[in-house]
Every structure is written in C-alpha cells, then in structure tokens.
Design a protein around this nucleic acid. Sequence first.
DNA 1: GCCGTTTTCGGCCCGACTGTTTTCAGTCG
Length: 599
Amino acid sequence: MATVKQWHESLNFSKMRLSHLLGQPMTNVRIAEVFDQIADLLEFEGANPFRVRAYRNAARIVRDLPDAITSILADPQRKLTDIDGIGDDLADKITTLAATGSLPFLEELLARVPESVLALMRIPGLGPKKAAVLYKELGVKTLADLKAACDSHKVQELKGFGAKTEQTILAGMTLAETAADRMLWAKADAIASNLLAHLKPLKEVKQLAAAGSYRRGSETVGDLDLLVDSTEPEKVMDRLAAYPDVAATIGRGDTKMSIRLEGGVQVDLRVVPEESFGAALLYFTGSKNHNIVLRGMAKDRGLKVNEYGIFRDDKFLAGRTEEEIYRMLDLPWIAPELREARQEFAWAAAGELPELIELADIRGDLHMHTTESDGRSTLAEMAAAAKALGHSYIAITDHSKRTSMANGLDSRRLLKQWSEIDALNAEKPGILVLKGVECDILEKGGLDIDDDTLAEADWVICSIHYGQNQSRQQITERILQAIENPNVAAIAHPTGRLINRRKPYEVDLEAVYKAAAKHGKFLELNSNPERLDLDDIHCAAAKQHGVKIVINTDAHRADALAGLRYGIMQARRAGLTKEDVANTRTWVQMRKLIGKTHS
DNA sequence: GCCGTTTTCGGCCCGACTGTTTTCAGTCG
C-alpha cells in the first residue's frame, strides 16, 4: 500500500545523508532506518528476497519494540537474540551500530550502489528489477536522469520495457510530486464513510467493509481498501467508477479495481462471494506481516490460507467469517488493532490476549480548555457536552500564564475560575467538574504556578510549551523535576508531539517512564488526531514500565470532546485494557491513585 | 538472514493484475 507515501519518505530519506543518521544516540528508530536502507540497497542488488525481508522485518521489529535497544544492551540479563526475528548476525550489527554509530556493511553497500537510485524504486510501477536495468543499461542514477531517459524514449527500447511502461513511469513521477502524504485516520474515516455510503445502496452489494490500515486503527492511513460481498463484481466496480470524486482508474480486473480520487488518495476495491468474505476481510485488513504469520501457521498444519478461505488439499474448509479462519488455526479472533505481528500471536498462544479497552470504558476526560484561555467553548458548554457523551467527570485545564499567546491564567485568575467551577458543581449539573490547570514547565525548570495555588487544584497536568529546542538532557531534566513535584498529577505531551506536524522535542523517554512509574504520576495519551501522543508504540512502552496512563482529548471546543475515540484506538493497538487506563475509574478511585486527600 | 515437538539445511504467504510476451516476469498488496 501507499506507494506514493513511500516515495515521499524516500525523498526525505535521500536528503538525510548517512552522516545525519550516524554519530547520534542510536535510538530504535535510527537503527530501524539503517536496516530499511540496507533492505532497499540489497533489493536493488537483486539479493535473496528472504534476506531482504529479514532486514525489513528487523527494521519493523526494532521500531515497534517497547524497550530502547540501548537499555537491552545495557542489561546483562537480556540478549538481543531473544527477540524473535533477530539472529546472531543482526544482533552483531545492532551492537556495532549502538557502540560505534556506524556499520561497515552499510558503507560497503553504499560504495557499490549510489544512494540516489533508491528513489527510482519508489516510483509506482518501478521495482528493484526494472530500476536495476535502468541503472545498468542507461546509467540512470537520479530522478532527473530517469526523466531525461523517458523523454528521449530510450527507456522503451530496453528489453522488458515498452512505450506503455515509459508512460507509466512519467505519470508516476508527476503523480508523486503532487500527491498527498499519508492521511490522518480521521480524514480516512471521512472518505471511507462516503465511499461505503456510495456503494451500499447497490442491490448487488450484500456486505461491505473498509479494511486495511484504516480498519486496524493506524494513526495514519495510506490507501483505502474496500471489500464487497457480491456475485456481480462488474456492477460493483461500475458503481465505484461512478463515484463523483474519482480522478483516474489505475487498474481494473475481474474482481479487483484501483482508483485514485481527486486529492491523490488511492482506493482499492475487491469483490468476493459470501463464502469468502471473512477470509478476504482478514487478508485485506492485514497487516501484511500478520498475514504472513497466519499463513505460515496454516502451512504447519497442512492447510492453506488465501483471500478465498482456508483449504486442505484444495478442499474449502471455511471462509465466511474471520472467526472461522482463526478457529481453524486454533486461535481466538484477534482484534484488527492488534494485527501487526507484534505480540498478538504470543498472547494468543498463552491465552493472554488482552481484553482491549473500549470508548465506553472511559469515565472522565481530564484535559480540556475553555474560553478563559484559548478554548472556543465556555466552561458550561464543555460540561454539558461531556455530560452528553456520558462522562461522569471532567477536569478543566486551561493554560497557565507563561503561555501568554493562549491567554494563560495566573494564580489569581485560576482561583477565580475554580470558584466558578465550585458554583457550577453546586448547581448539580449532572457531571463532576474538577478544578485543574495545564501548568507550563518553565524553560529554566520549575512550574509556572506557585505550589500553594497548585495544592488547591484537583488535577494538575504539566507540559512544555517553551524552550523546545533545548538539548535532550535539559528537556528531560525539566520533565523529571515536574514529575517530582507532589502537586503534579500528570505530564501531557510526554514525547513532545504538541504542535501539529512539527518535529517533537527530544527527550529521554526511558527516564521519564521510570520517574513517572516511581512517583505514581500519569502520562497522558493525548487524543488529538493531529498530534496524537503517546502513540501506540510509546503507549506500550509506558505500560511496560508500569506507568499509569490517562486518555484525554485536550479539547479546545465542545465538539472536540468526541475525539476521545482516536486515542482509544491507539491504546487498543498498544494492547491496553480497561485496567491499564486510569480514567476508566470513578473519580473517587482516581483520587486515591493520585494520593490527594483534600476534598 | 532467520528458524527448528518433522529440521542446523532448506525452507521462507499467496494471488491479482499489467505489460511484454508467446508462457511469464515484475510489481503490488
């Protein structure tokens, strides 16, 4: 999926020279980037595809790991080779990377293959084989070379290429220049809902679903994958072709069709008969790696799984529902959010598949703003909207004074707001409104509101809004200091994703997790879809360290309170249960967790 | 490159679609 997105990433990646990757603390993400680049280079060289897959797999495994590689290396009790998919060779390479910041094997590869050719493989329709031919036969090293070769029609003269391929390459190049990045889940949701509503009225459509990373609740979505149960694929495909927003048809066969919408989003449609709907839903939901494991398990049992069902010696056994397929493999049904080939199979084998948290489990939202700072809705409007959503409590957490451009409150205004909250509660609004604040962690350390005032609050959540360019160590120190303040209950934006689309600040998250666990402080999963933080990986890491998590919206207007579901999806992807998330509890229970005793 | 209650070698998920072929390789998901 998402060839266009990969293209973008490759453009960004090729700008980011190796020297930028190296010589910095070796985070999991940086190690993963090195392995992905090795996989690309090996693939270009035509290496054994399974060897390439091993590197890609390792990249994904390291990226998804809740623990920092550096802390595993530092722990004499643990070995890298204990991680599934990491053998002796890759463990050595990781160790070398972490110790020296460089990897001789990668240097060798880069000496053989110019890094710029990797961008060729990102063009839709150009894979490693064709890219290698272009490089070897025509000396195409860059995208500019490729453009020139197509324009002079040298490409179509190559064996295995033709006029059509040349056109496809040119079209792929211009498309990639203008196409959109991966979209946020919320946008995918809007588009998918419209598409489903367009297809549903067709009488030939018996069942339909949106699958892919959208169904898995991935934070961002590349392509949309639609699945339809019908015996009349032609009619279904005609219906999709008639969708008003279609810009182009990329491909169309007997049961499968791909279109591109205005704005660049690719939509893949697959039509299957009823007896295959569950198998196809499983296949189309992915992830790819989840499917690979499933199919391997089937093979071990002398079975075969494809998108039509599960088979023994070509005899159809099941396929109507996902449950049937899982059952044939002695597995319970696995929630789509968990299907990333991370821990779900180990959990299933041990009978420890977590009962994932649901939206309805949340009892209160503990981070929101009002018109008193930079919110758009009043205190009363926020309370009414939260009550309508079924919450039993909320915390009003307007900004503190340092955040002056958001009209942050000083202690005098805070105390005034809190007396208004007392008055509102006295009117018995049907929801408990808590006196809170989102208190700035100042550049020099320390908090923006005095301790005497903070002691009056029910709920103090802290975050960094200024001095985000400080060193990793300075930022970490500031956060640790806030965690140690007895008046503080929670840290918001712990990984630094607090401004849309801007690079997060650098922070030693291990230290933050450890301190939060030690002092019983909450880390916030901020549910804003545009700057979601903690994401699924960080969420799992926080849980691993025994940190208490709260899921809040950080809503700036009443209708944004419904955005809690975005955070819930990430929590589910991290395998969190109701117990793992603190604000599934009543406020009385929560207050005990915080350790506050005053009323 | 990884992995092993069939294994330390020989496997590694599976099928649709396209373009260039004349039975298939490459690409994609």
